[in-house]
Nucleic acid binder design. Structure first.
Lengths: 144, 144
DNA sequence: ATAAATTTGGTACTTTAGTATGAACGGATG
DNA sequence: CATCCGTTCATACTAAAGTACCAAATTTAT
């Protein structure tokens, strides 16, 4: 990346030197206006490069912003489907591979209640099985 | 790639033209040295900025490279766990919310065979349920 | 070619998952 | 205050998932 700038600078210098050589002999005179300008040209181009790199350097933030696009559950769609808080909690545990009994223990409710919630979720997500409910929920981004 | 070369060529030509202009231009004749230097300083700094932005612009490619990090099933881990091709096919269908019968129909085998494959997968993935197998498989990145 | 692993399939069984239905409780709302 | 909604739970049932054990055909490797 940086090499490109360096190479360009070196090439510019070499180019201008060739121009000078083609027109005048280096031996006849010392430094001349063209050479001075060329020197400053390269110098300030390099300065511009460094400045730009300093100003536009936050690449990590760009990456972060890209990555932070996904971890957002679509709250609007959750409401749209009429999924309640408790149902959503069950859905989250379900998506983590928990059984009905395990979910019941974690949420301090009976397995019957979990079954009710799961059944409601299947209807609301238009799924036949819990595995399908999970894939659908991830597709419509109501869970991550 | 080719564009960079073309732009470089064009910029080199522009640079030389500016050198020539500084020598013979009617516009710059009456101006003093300090002003001239300042003018070129700003000009070339701007040139450096433009150049850098052109050279370092491939943001889309960076994004692609970031995104292309994930869609790679860890083939090494699949072998490590001793998961066969057929078992992996079953795992893929399973992760898409398919039932054993649906998987059987899709892979042209009996439901019994699917059950065998699923059971083997549960052992190899150290899971108690298919939902857990899916989450584990995604965690260790053998499926996307 | 023989051994080893994969793939396939079956039967019989246990365990989860899911459905249907009913009921009770509390909070919010008009 | 009556009603709707969400949450809770139970029973009884059907369906699907998963286990265990066995067996044969096929592929792959040695």
């Amino acid at each position: 990346m940086r090499r490109v700038a360096i190479r360009f600078g070196m090439l510019a210098v070499a180019l201008m030197l060739l121009i000078q050589l083609s027109k005048y002999s280096l031996l006849t005179r010392g430094l001349r206006d063209e050479f001075l300008i060329a020197f400053f040209a390269v110098l300030f181009v390099g300065l511009g490069v460094v400045l730009t790199k300093l100003v536009f350097k936050p690449k990590t933030k760009i990456i972060q912003s890209i990555r932070s696009e996904e971890p957002k559950p679509d709250l609007a769609k959750i409401e749209e489907l009429g999924i309640s808080k408790r149902e959503y909690e069950v859905l989250e545990q379900m998506a983590r591979g928990k059984s009905n009994l395990e979910i019941a223990d974690k949420l301090f409710i009976s397995e019957s209640t979990v079954k009710t919630h799961v059944s409601n979720l299947l209807v609301k997500l238009d799924a036949k099985r819990r595995t399908q409910a999970i894939t659908i929920a991830k597709e419509i981004k109501i869970i991550i």
